[in-house]
């Protein structure tokens, strides 16, 4: 059984009811709602500043099958100002800043998310790829388009919550 090693930087808000497993570092200003689960299975998870992780969100650090059994332990670094909305599942090996994962979306463990991306509600992204900056995925067919600037919702939403 893996030992839990959780570091919470002052200023972060982590609810007791959330499920945290493994080596996790949580940056200042980040809010983790009850019943969110963050599971560091393959290696440590570092969450940046001012992220918002809502209820029933699952952030799982799990490696693809072909990359397992390697000596180096990879670190999942989640940048700042990311929003994980209710009931989304994110297994991406790398997440930049200012991303929005909308409700009930699914991001597979072969997808690298850069900055300013929006994964729309209910969209499933599993194919191996690197999402370029400011990509927006939406609709039942997971249409993709490039936005002009980063989504500006994250800070406002957090202010409303506090």
């Amino acid at each position: 059984m893996q030992r839990n090693n959780i570091k919470v930087i002052p200023g972060a808000l982590v609810c007791e009811e959330s499920k945290l497993r493994g080596d996790i570092t949580i940056g200042a200003g980040t809010i983790i709602h009850p019943n969110a689960s963050i599971i560091a299975e393959a290696g440590p998870i570092i969450i940046g500043e001012n992220c918002l992780i809502e209820e029933q969100v699952k952030i799982i650090h799990r490696l693809p099958f072909d990359q397992q059994n390697k000596d180096t332990t990879p670190v999942l670094i989640i940048g700042s100002h990311n929003v994980f909305e209710v009931d989304c599942t994110v297994e991406a090996p790398k997440i930049g800043n200012h991303n929005v994962f909308e409700s009930k979306c699914f991001v597979g463990n072969k997808v690298t998310v850069s900055n300013g991306c929006i994964i729309g509600a209910g969209c499933k992204v599993t194919e191996e790829q690197i999402l370029k900056e400011n990509i927006c995925i939406f609709g039942s067919n997971c249409q993709m388009r490039e936005c002009i600037d980063k989504p500006a919702v994250s800070t406002r939403k957090q202010l409303l919550l506090i």
């Binding site: 929006i118 729309g120 927006c136 939406f138 609709g139 249409q143 388009r145 936005c147 002009i148 989504p151």
Partner: peptide
């Protein structure tokens, strides 16, 4: 609100 298209685009 859906695809984040804006008139600025």
């Amino acid at each position: 609100h859906f695809c984040h298209w804006t008139s600025r685009d």
